[in-house]
Design a protein around this nucleic acid. Sequence first.
DNA 1: TATTGTTATACTCTATAACTATA
DNA 2: TATAGTTATAGAGTATAACAATA
Lengths: 147, 147
Amino acid sequence: MDNDVGHEIANALAILLRRTTRAQLHQRITQGMGEAVDELTYPILSALARTGPRSAADLAPDAGVDRSGVTRRATRLETAGLIRREPDPTDRRAHLLVLTEQGEAAVAELRTRLADHIMDSLSSWPPGEAEAFARQLRRFTVDGPFT
Amino acid sequence: MDNDVGHEIANALAILLRRTTRAQLHQRITQGMGEAVDELTYPILSALARTGPRSAADLAPDAGVDRSGVTRRATRLETAGLIRREPDPTDRRAHLLVLTEQGEAAVAELRTRLADHIMDSLSSWPPGEAEAFARQLRRFTVDGPFT
DNA sequence: TATTGTTATACTCTATAACTATA
DNA sequence: TATAGTTATAGAGTATAACAATA
């Protein structure tokens, strides 16, 4: 077959991009964290933990939804006490989404669970391979075939 | 931070698993291929090309939907003339989904587009890196954190 | 009894388009 | 004018549960 490498990556992507792949991973990671934490709200929490307080419009691209989607998900998280809305001091139209103390704790637990689960799954890899793969995977998200 | 590698992979996965990542890639690849070919039907076509004629129940896990989902998507492809349904000679309850000649041609084009686009995006990588990454990515889909 | 393909139903989630307030 | 957050609406897609036919 021509372009074996391209086809091999394409076949792997077919698995990674499946809706069920995302759903199963998130379901496992968020198990027992309360009803507000699931496949939809985890990206919101995770993004806030990575970047600090942000507006809904700012956060939307990172979560892969538009700002109305961020609003819906954020409202669920706010009701559960995991985030709060604060007025943006630099723009009175905007609100900043901020992790509460409870939210910070939840995110820390979730991120640890995910990172540990990933490393556990790669425990049989030769030393150094996971490190090399992590660097390449990150580069792939930047250089790769995504728009 | 503890477990840097796990977190780095987790951050990359956050991008790969986004609904919009899948949608944008598929939209690009299926452009101009007719209304029947899109993000939802491409996995059906691709799976049939990889494995040959299969029943809906067989194919469902590969596409990440249940058999009723395969039926819906297959009907769209059948209407467009890209697949046909044949009775399964070994099981009279089942139908085999088979690519038509037109379907074979469409899949060949789609798979070439995708593989080429992937390789194009990695053209700046050092020689041999894409090959190594392809092998690791495939291993990651097998060993990785996906239940 | 279990499993096949199919269909109808109920549900979830989304983008779009409004709206008001502020830049 | 343009952009902020929010809400209602309409649309798409899903799993579930039925069904008849076959294993």
